[in-house]
Design a protein around this nucleic acid. Structure first.
Length: 281
DNA sequence: ATGTCGTGAAAGTCACGA
C-alpha cells in the first residue's frame, strides 16, 4: 500500500493536480486536509473517474478533511472520540466541533486524516485549543492501541508543529514568539511516541520541509517548515518499506503551500525486514 | 508592504484564516 498525506489548501482549486499526483505516483490512499469546502461540494467525480472512492467531511470554507482510496473505504468516523470543539469567547466541553478529523479503515489499516488547529498566537485562545486537541488525540490513540495493540493505525496530516529546530527554516517562526515551535507544542507532539505512535518518515527522510509560506519567497529561499507527518503504530511502522516528501509539488501552476508525504507499506511482510532503521527499538 | 493565497458575501472589493 502507498499511503500519502497532503494539505491541499482547497481541493476545488487543485483537484486536477491532486488526482494527477495520485495517478502518477500510484497512490492507494490519500489523506487530504484543508479541502476548504462542504462535504457536498467535494469534487467526487474527478476522483471516481481515476478509480478512487472518497470519504469527505467539510462544514464550510474553513478546514475540511477527506480520504481517497483505491480500495473500498469502511467504518468512516467523523471526528475522534473526545475531540474538542471551539467557539469564540466560550470555554467548556460541548462546543461545536470543527471539520478537522476523519477516520476510515482501508485494507485493514485504520487511517486518520488530521488537520491540527494552527494555534495562531501564543496568547490566543486557539493556542490553548490546539494543545487540548492534541492531548485528546493522543488519549484517543493510546486508548485505541490499549484495546488493540496489533492494530495498524496511522495518524496522518498537518500537525502545525515543527518538532525540532532542524524542521524550522522560516525566519519568522521563532521560539518564544510564535506557534509551531513552542516547548508545549513540541511536548504534545513527542507525547504521541509514548502512546505507541512513531514518525515513520523521519528515519528514512531525516531532513526536509513539507510546507513553505506563499509570502516573501519562502519556497525559492527554501525557508520552510516540516509540519506534515505520518505517525504509525508498531504494526503500521513495521510494514513501512519506504518514504517520500514530494518537494516538486510546491512548484508549477497553482501549488498548495504544502507538499505530499508518502509512506510505502508491505503489510504482508510486517515485522520481517532487517534492512531498514528500527523505528521501535 | 504581513509583499500570497483561497473562500464567501457582497459586489466589481473586503473580511477572514493561514
Amino acid at each position: 500500500m502507498r499511503l500519502a498525506t497532503w494539505n491541499v489548501n482547497s481541493i476545488r482549486a487543485r483537484v486536477t493536480r491532486t488526482v494527477e499526483f495520485c495517478v502518477r505516483e500510484h497512490i492507494d490512499v490519500l489523506a487530504m486536509q484543508e479541502i476548504k469546502c462542504k462535504t457536498e461540494q467535494f469534487p467526487y467525480a474527478a476522483f471516481e473517474e481515476a478509480g478512487y472512492h472518497v470519504a469527505a467531511h467539510g462544514l464550510n470554507q474553513w478546514n475540511g478533511v477527506a480520504i481517497a482510496s483505491r480500495e473500498p473505504i469502511e467504518d468512516v468516523e467523523i471526528g475522534f472520540p473526545g475531540m474538542p470543539g471551539f467557539e469564540k469567547g466560550k470555554e467548556g466541553p460541548d462546543l461545536p466541533q470543527e471539520a478537522r478529523a476523519i477516520g476510515a479503515t482501508v485494507g485493514g489499516v485504520r487511517v486518520w486524516s488530521l488537520y491540527v488547529p494552527n494555534g495562531r498566537g501564543l496568547n490566543d485562545p486557539h493556542y490553548v485549543y490546539k494543545l487540548d486537541w492534541l492531548e485528546k488525540l493522543r488519549a484517543y490513540a493510546a486508548d485505541t492501541l490499549a484495546k488493540d495493540p496489533d492494530l495498524p493505525l496511522a495518524l496522518t496530516g498537518d500537525f502545525n508543529i515543527a518538532p525540532t529546530d532542524a524542521d524550522n527554516g522560516d525566519p519568522t517562526v521563532v521560539e518564544g514568539a510564535t506557534t509551531h515551535v513552542s516547548p508545549p507544542e513540541r511536548a504534545a507532539f513527542a507525547a504521541f511516541e509514548s502512546a505507541g505512535l512513531a514518525d515513520v518518515v523521519r528515519p528514512l527522510i531525516p531532513t526536509g520541509y513539507t510546507y513553505w509560506d506563499y509570502k516573501q519567497l519562502r519556497f525559492p529561499r527554501n525557508e520552510g517548515l516540516r509540519i506534515d507527518f505520518i505517525l504509525g503504530s508498531r504494526a503500521f511502522a513495521d510494514a513501512v518499506q519506504g518514504a517520500e516528501i514530494h518537494r516538486n509539488e510546491r512548484k508549477g501552476e497553482v501549488p498548495s503551500d504544502h507538499v505530499p508525504v508518502v509512506a510505502d507499506l508491505d503489510l504482508a511482510d510486517a515485522g520481517d525486514d532487517d534492512d531498514l532503521p528500527m523505528i521501535f527499538g
